[in-house]
Amino acid sequence: MIRVGVIGTGAMGQNHVRIYSEMEGVELAGVSDVDQKRVESMATQFKTQAFTDYKKMFAEGLDAVSVVVPTKLHKQVVLDALDAGIHVLVEKPIADTTENADLMIAAAKNAEKILMVGHIERFNPAVIKLKEIINSGTLGKIVSISTKRVGPYNPRIRDVGVILDIGVHDIDVISYLYGKKINSVYAIAGADIHSFEDHASIILRMDHNFAGVVETNWLTPHKVRQLTAIGVKGVAYLDYINQTVQLHDNEWIRKAKVEPSEPLKNELTYFMDCAATGKAPNPCGEDGKHALEVAMAAIKSYEEGRLIEVGK
């Protein structure tokens, strides 16, 4: 029986709590939040203990914890959890700075504990299927992957702009599907309804002739979550929301067989398996750091109006 806790019971944290409470072989040992009324309500609903101080929850003998707090708080909460000998899943982005990400990665290594980053789209059945299709060679060499992640602004997002909040999903997915690190970034963005950027067009380069394009905003009145992968033998169209993948080539238009499932449930089930077996997670801390580096480079690019080399 794995004993797990959740720190942060906002919109996303509540989903972590719900899913853990339904898992076999997992005991939801506690939930923590600075909002006492909310955390007590959650604890009552899901028949667990409530804590306003997460360190007191650690004393309950946790094996693993989900950290679902604002990005600026990730570093300290994760370091405290690792110091307590607890496996950690931290929501994306991994941290607010690459320096803090490095501290978290080093702490996990020293503690010999898992640090997994919640890049949930890797656990979307459509993305899993497209990765299989790309690896099989059906589309041939992939030369361009473009994404559209747009929709109305969510007022609960106050500490980061659209690139770090939702654009980072597609930055990670593009790198994951190619199986390559992103070398350089050029972005055009602006802030029109938010204190941080609320729309961005980002061009990514891997090696010399592999391209990625991310279009994202908080201005579109309806939600769109789509990806197009162009190969020399065909094109794949993926819909994150409907969990569909359609392939087009010179002869056929085919729909891939995708079994729909909840990405977060897939992700947390995988995390629990890693915690139980000790196997290295994917995405790991280094993956989370790379996505953060690219997102930060995109922000720097639009602010300075120039191409930015990643990690330099």
Score class of each variant (00 low, 15 high):
Arg158Asp: 09
Ile182Val: 14
Gly151Ala: 01
Asp172Asn: 13
Arg205Asn: 12
Ser175Asp: 01
Asp170Val: 07
Phe123Pro: 04
Tyr186Phe: 13
Ile182Glu: 02
Tyr186Ala: 02
Leu204Thr: 15
Gly151Leu: 09
Ser146Glu: 15
Ile128Thr: 15
His169Arg: 08
Ile166Cys: 09
Ala200Lys: 06
Leu139Tyr: 00
Ile128Ala: 10
Asp198Asn: 12
Val168Cys: 05
Gly151Trp: 05
Pro125Leu: 01
Tyr176Thr: 08
Leu177Thr: 01
Gly190Phe: 12
Leu177Ser: 03
Lys180Arg: 14
Asp159Trp: 11
Ser195Pro: 12
Ile166Gln: 15
Leu164Arg: 01
Ser146Tyr: 13
Ala200Ser: 10
Asp165Glu: 02
Tyr153Pro: 02
Val127Asp: 01
Ile182Met: 07
Leu164Ala: 04
His194Ile: 11
Val185Met: 10
Leu177Asn: 02
Pro125Val: 06
Glu197Ile: 11
Val117Tyr: 04
His119Glu: 08
Ser175Cys: 01
His199Lys: 14
Lys181Val: 06
Lys131His: 10
Gly179Trp: 08
Lys131Phe: 03
Met206Pro: 05
Ala126Phe: 02
Val160Phe: 04
Val150Ser: 05
Ile174Pro: 04
Ala200Trp: 06
Ile174Tyr: 04
Ile174Ala: 10
Lys129Val: 11
Leu204Lys: 14
Asp170Thr: 05
Pro152Cys: 08
Asn183Thr: 03
Met206Gly: 09
Ala200Val: 05
Val150Arg: 05
Val127Asn: 02
Pro152His: 00
Ala187Ile: 11
Val143Arg: 15
Ser144Asp: 13
Pro155Ile: 10
Phe123Tyr: 14
